[in-house]
Design a binder for these strands. Structure first.
Length: 259
DNA sequence: ATGGTTGTAAAACAA
């Protein structure tokens, strides 16, 4: 079973690339972030024509998360429990083929110390509590998405250049580690220890051509899922296509016993 | 370079 995560940066603008990638990479599940549209505008039919069911949680213009899956998408949960009006659409969870998949778009944070930075840290704390209240560490749980944090310096092309910036600041990294410590393992790091593997490159300054990127998109799994992970990798190719998202897909292959 | 690029949506704002 192949599960992928991709911040598509507008599903309406990116639909041709997303469909092309689904056709070529053939993941069983694609978790998307930044769909940037309400559910009514989500192009569900285009996914159905490729054999994918969908579930989306959107809002106008910003944020938004969605699943596309060859398997049934069961027990869909949109947003945190106790969500309030005006909350961003940044989390969608569901049970897919026996795995509890939580698809998140963690806030960017803008600048260290800003209101948006505090909002990011608070949102990450709510995410930590979401796992605590909803799942057990022995459950098969997979959380993936645009975490907007590079966990370590080896996840940054030029760490010195990023000191003092969001995505790498110590408080964000500590908050991310608190989430991970509930019971997650970074699936990508089960298979690749080296630096230089990134999932996002800024649109500016030819960052992609210089591989001046960050690894901020992640797939984390609980122990029972980790034991079934067969491989995990980043597919850089869609970042090189015309009119790309600034992110590229991260994939994990999980044994289900049905293959 | 207080710039640079892209998306939404129609002027800033978010990333």
């Amino acid at each position: 079973m192949k599960i992928a995560t991709w911040n598509v940066n507008s599903i309406v603008a990116r639909l041709p690339l997303v469909l092309r990638w689904l056709d070529e990479a053939k993941p069983d599940v694609l978790c998307m972030q930044e769909i940037k549209c309400v559910e009514d505008k989500f192009p569900a039919m285009a996914f159905e024509e490729l054999g994918y069911k969908t579930a989306a949680f959107g809002q106008p213009s910003y944020n938004g998360v969605a699943f596309a899956s060859r398997f049934d998408i069961q027990n869909v949960k949109r947003g945190f429990t106790g969500a309030e009006p005006g909350d961003h659409s940044r989390l969608i969870a569901a049970e897919i083929n026996g795995i509890n998949i939580v698809n998140v778009y963690i806030p960017n944070g803008s600048e260290v110390g800003s209101d948006k930075y505090i909002f990011k840290l608070n949102w990450m704390n709510r995410l930590r509590l979401f796992f605590k209240e909803r799942y057990s560490q022995t459950d098969p749980v997979l959380v993936c998405g645009d975490f907007n944090v590079a966990p370590e310096d080896r996840d940054v092309h030029d760490p010195a250049k990023w000191v003092g910036n969001v995505l790498v600041s110590p408080r964000e990294r500590a908050s991310l580690e608190q989430i991970r410590a509930w019971g997650f393992i970074d699936a990508f790091r089960l298979f690749t220890e080296s630096s230089g593997a990134f999932s996002w490159w800024d649109y500016r300054q030819g960052a992609f051509q210089k591989n001046d990127g960050l690894r901020i998109d992640h797939i984390w799994v609980t122990k029972s899922v980790a034991e079934r992970c067969q491989s995990s990798w980043i597919d850089k190719e869609p970042r090189s296509w015309e009119r790309p998202s600034d992110h590229t897909p991260v994939i994990v292959e999980i044994a289900t016993g049905k293959e």
